[in-house]
Measured scan of single mutants.
Amino acid sequence: ENVVSAPMPGKVLRVLVRVGDRVRVGQGLLVLEAMKMENEIPSPRDGVVKRILVKEGEIDDTGQPLIELG
């Protein structure tokens, strides 16, 4: 899985990584606010952040691509 998608609709509060960062499975990639709760979205695998497809403050839909890993 190279693309991390939104598991729920919500607002992107914080992006915790930058392009080029090495990430490990379970590491937080970004924080979504949904139903007044903050949810940290973890990396599904080890890899390198290739692209960040959303910006802080954006509203996303379920299934929307958020981050691409390489």
Rank of each mutant, 00 (worst) to 15 (best):
E1D: 13
E1G: 13
E1C: 15
E1N: 13
E1W: 14
N2L: 14
N2F: 15
N2M: 14
N2H: 13
N2Y: 15
N2P: 06
N2G: 10
V3M: 13
V3I: 14
V3D: 04
V4C: 06
V4A: 04
V4I: 12
V4S: 03
V4M: 04
S5W: 13
A6V: 05
A6M: 09
A6G: 04
A6N: 06
A6E: 02
A6S: 11
P7G: 09
P7K: 08
M8Q: 08
M8L: 09
M8V: 09
M8C: 12
M8F: 15
M8K: 07
P9R: 14
P9H: 10
P9I: 08
P9A: 13
G10V: 07
G10N: 03
G10K: 02
G10Y: 07
G10F: 10
G10A: 06
K11R: 13
K11H: 05
K11M: 09
K11Q: 06
K11S: 04
K11Y: 09
V12Y: 00
V12F: 00
V12K: 01
V12A: 01
V12W: 01
L13E: 01
L13R: 05
L13T: 08
R14V: 06
R14C: 09
R14G: 02
V15W: 11
V15P: 00
V15L: 12
V15Q: 00
V17H: 01
V17M: 01
V17Y: 00
V17S: 00
R18N: 10
R18C: 11
R18Q: 11
R18D: 07
V19F: 04
V19N: 04
V19I: 10
G20W: 05
G20Q: 03
G20K: 04
G20E: 03
D21C: 10
D21Y: 06
D21E: 13
D21F: 09
R22A: 11
R22T: 12
V23T: 03
V23Q: 01
V23E: 02
R24D: 05
R24P: 02
R24L: 10
R24H: 12
R24Q: 10
R24N: 09
V25E: 12
V25D: 04
V25P: 07
G26V: 04
G26F: 06
G26R: 04
G26A: 04
G26K: 04
G26W: 06
Q27W: 05
Q27F: 07
Q27E: 07
G28D: 03
G28H: 08
L29C: 06
L29T: 02
L29V: 07
L29P: 01
L30S: 00
L30C: 05
V31A: 02
V31E: 00
L32G: 00
L32A: 00
L32F: 15
L32Q: 04
E33V: 11
E33S: 09
E33G: 10
E33H: 08
E33W: 15
A34H: 15
A34W: 15
A34Y: 15
A34D: 07
A34G: 09
A34T: 13
M35V: 07
M35L: 12
M35Y: 13
M35C: 13
K36H: 14
K36D: 15
K36A: 13
K36T: 11
K36N: 15
K36L: 12
K36S: 14
K36C: 15
K36P: 04
M37P: 02
M37Y: 08
E38D: 06
N39C: 15
N39A: 12
E40K: 08
E40V: 15
E40H: 09
E40C: 14
E40R: 08
E40T: 15
I41L: 08
P42A: 12
S43D: 01
S43V: 02
S43F: 02
S43E: 01
S43K: 02
S43I: 03
S43A: 11
P44L: 05
P44Y: 04
P44I: 04
R45M: 14
R45V: 14
D46C: 11
D46M: 07
D46E: 10
D46R: 07
D46L: 05
G47E: 01
G47A: 10
G47F: 04
G47D: 03
G47C: 06
G47L: 04
G47I: 03
V48F: 13
V49L: 02
V49P: 02
V49R: 02
V49G: 01
K50M: 13
K50S: 10
K50F: 11
K50H: 10
K50L: 14
K50I: 14
R51S: 09
R51A: 12
R51P: 02
R51V: 08
R51C: 11
R51I: 07
I52W: 03
I52C: 03
L53A: 03
L53F: 15
L53W: 13
V54W: 07
V54K: 05
V54Q: 03
K55R: 12
K55G: 09
K55L: 11
K55S: 12
K55P: 07
E56Y: 09
E56T: 10
G57F: 06
G57Q: 06
G57E: 06
G57M: 06
G57N: 07
G57P: 04
G57C: 08
E58K: 09
E58A: 10
E58W: 14
E58Q: 12
I59P: 06
I59H: 11
I59T: 10
D60G: 15
D60Y: 15
D61Y: 15
D61T: 13
D61R: 14
D61P: 09
D61C: 13
D61N: 12
T62C: 11
G63Q: 07
G63D: 08
G63C: 10
G63R: 07
Q64G: 09
Q64E: 09
Q64W: 12
P65D: 06
P65F: 07
P65G: 09
P65M: 08
P65Q: 06
P65W: 10
L66E: 01
L66P: 02
I67D: 01
I67S: 02
I67W: 02
E68D: 05
E68F: 10
L69Y: 04
L69Q: 02
L69S: 02
L69P: 01
L69I: 12
G70C: 15
G70Y: 15
